[in-house]
Each structure stands twice: as C-alpha cells, then as structure tokens.
Simulated assay, not measured.
Amino acid sequence: MTTAAVLGAGSWGTAFAKVLADAGTDVTMWARRPEVAESLSTHHRNPDYLSDIPLPPIAATHDPAVALAGADIVVLAVPSQSLRTNLTAWKGLIAPEATLVSLIKGVETGTLLRMSEVIGEVTGAAPERIAVLSGPNLAREVATCQPTATVIACADNERGVALQHAIATGYFRPYTNTDVIGCEIGGACKNVIALACGIASGMGLGDNSIASLITRGLAEIIRLGVAVGAEPATLAGLAGVGDLVATCNSSLSRNRSFGHVLGAGGSMEVAQQATHGQVAEGVKSCTSVRALAVRHDVEMPLTNAVHQVCHEGLSVREAVGNLLGRRIKPE
C-alpha cells in the first residue's frame, strides 16, 4: 500500500489527508501541537479546523520523524513563508525517492521562488520528484465530499499518474499535467485577485464589478505566467480559471473574506480577526507576486493596488479610483 505523510494540519492539509485516506492511501498527519495530533488520532477530528467534520481513521503525530518514516508521498501543507524553515528541519527525514507534493499557494518573499523551487533548493530533490496540486478545491467542500476536480502537475508524467491514483476518489477527480510553473503561478496569483474581489464586495459593488475583476485578474495572471514559462492553456484550466473563480466568489475563501472586511472599512487587524487567525496567503503573496512582475517587466495593476491597500496605507476608495482612472486601451 502507498503511504503518505501530510505535514500541516490546517484546513487544506486536513481535508487532503481525508482525500488520501478515502482513496485507500495509508496516511499519517503531522501537527505542530501535540493536542491537535492527539485529537486527530483519538477522536478523528481536528479541533482547530473543520472541527465539525468527522475524519476517517488517520494516524497523527507531532513528531515529524514518526510522520515521515517510510512515506512514499510527502505532502507539504504549511504556509508559504514558513516552508523553508520547516523543510530545513525535515529534509534529513525524507526518504531519498519519496515524491514531494506541494499544496502551498504562494511565492517566497525575498527570493521570489515558487514553492517547488524552494522544495528543490532546500532538499536537493530533482524536479522530477516534486509535484504541485492546484484547482478549485475549497477545503470545507472537499472535506464534505462535494465533487470537484484538480490538477496534479509533475515534470515526471509517470510519477504524476501514480499520484493521480493515490488521490482519486468518487468526489475528488485529479487530472495530470506537466506544467508545474503554470499551476504554481495560477495558485499564487488567484489569492491576490480574490482579495481584490473581496474588497469590491465589501464596498457593496455588484456582479459586474466582480466579473470584471476576475477577468482582468486572469489577464494579469496569464501575462506573468507566460513571462516565467507557463503554458497559457494551464491558466485557462482548473489550476487557473477554475481556482480563480472558486476563490474569488466563495464565502469559504479566506482571501475573499479578508478583502471583504477591508472593503467594508475594517482594518488589517480586524480582517485578521474575522478570518479566525487563519492565513490569508494573498496578503503576503501580493508583495512577492508584484516583485516578480517587476522583475519580468509585467504590468499587474490589480496586484499593485492590493499591495498598496494591504501594505502602504492606500484606502480602498483611492485604489478603486486609481484603477478606474487608468488610461483606456484595447483589451
């Protein structure tokens, strides 16, 4: 039987561990806090995330060595800006041929590396051993077995197919792809556009405004993706449009919810409280995505506006005014 370690017990790590177990994969979860690991092992519930959803019998531990022992698949489900620190501590515990799977959406601050690049740099793993998963996969809906599809991207197609079989269930349908860059750029950027959509919603703007933001946001994502080597078709699929639409429209999206509070006049601190302390990845990603765009001379006005609101004190009304005041031009 295939064995997997899921490192990270947040909403998405918890939901994905359930997917693996439901697909017949032997799963062990790692949780940072011993009491969370104990609850997962004994009561089959995560006391902090998705606490009302029963989980299948899944082993859990707060000792990474125990979680990683013999794991064929190592699933990384920690916040993007803490991946390097965590992985540095774990790398000596990972089996030499294990497949490393990133569930993480973001670009590392400072280095501007994608998550698969951070994984390769820290562990020394070849690109063929590293996969990323991305799609319209809101954690709560996945955990309650609502049907969805996803993309598992890996440079090694055979490894991607093996992963596909390890995670396929009656409600979770994975497609393979070899465009790791496209999947990661789509996943990192959609959180930023979701913040913009949340801000618009909080300001009381309607469906036309949201649709316009999603569409122009997609244009930004494709421009950046192509500049760094992504395939445009990937960004027109589940890991691009699919993930973008789900994240920008759903009240289950932390990024949209965070933006909604800002749009309604709340501060960054109030928005953080409203998302129950969970990480809205777009708040940090907007800075690194903007820097990556500057590096590649790509224009990303929505991303720039979100960065200015979150980190430079620009009011949401000033940001909207600046966007609407931009020079008109062909689409």
Rank of each mutant, 00 (worst) to 15 (best):
M1H: 00
W12I: 14
W12T: 13
A15T: 03
A15C: 00
A15M: 11
F16C: 09
T25M: 01
A31N: 03
R32W: 07
V36E: 00
E38A: 10
S39I: 10
S41C: 06
H43Q: 11
S51V: 15
P54N: 13
I58P: 12
D63K: 06
V66T: 14
V66L: 14
A67T: 04
A69F: 05
L76S: 02
A77T: 07
P79N: 08
S80Q: 09
Q81G: 04
L83E: 00
T85A: 15
T85I: 05
N86K: 15
L87T: 02
P96Q: 04
E97C: 06
A98E: 11
A98F: 14
L103F: 13
V107E: 10
E108R: 15
T111V: 02
T111M: 09
L112P: 08
M115L: 13
E117N: 04
I119L: 10
G124L: 03
A125C: 06
P127V: 07
V132Y: 01
P136T: 10
N137I: 02
N137S: 02
E141Q: 14
E141A: 15
E141C: 13
A143D: 06
P147E: 11
A149T: 15
V151I: 07
A153V: 10
D156Y: 03
L163I: 15
A166V: 07
A166R: 02
R173H: 04
Y175S: 01
T176H: 03
G187K: 14
A188Y: 13
C189K: 15
A196Y: 04
C197A: 04
I199Y: 05
M203L: 08
G206C: 02
G206S: 11
D207G: 10
I210Y: 14
I210E: 11
A219N: 03
E220S: 06
E220N: 01
R223W: 06
R223K: 07
L224H: 05
A227G: 08
E231R: 14
G237L: 12
G242T: 01
A246R: 08
L252Y: 15
H260M: 08
A264Q: 08
S267Y: 00
E269N: 11
V270G: 12
Q272P: 01
Q273M: 13
G277W: 07
Q278Y: 07
G282A: 06
G282Y: 03
V283D: 03
K284T: 06
S288I: 10
L292A: 03
V294N: 07
M300V: 06
N304L: 14
H307A: 14
V309N: 00
L314T: 00
V316R: 12
E318F: 01
A319F: 11
A319R: 08
R327F: 15
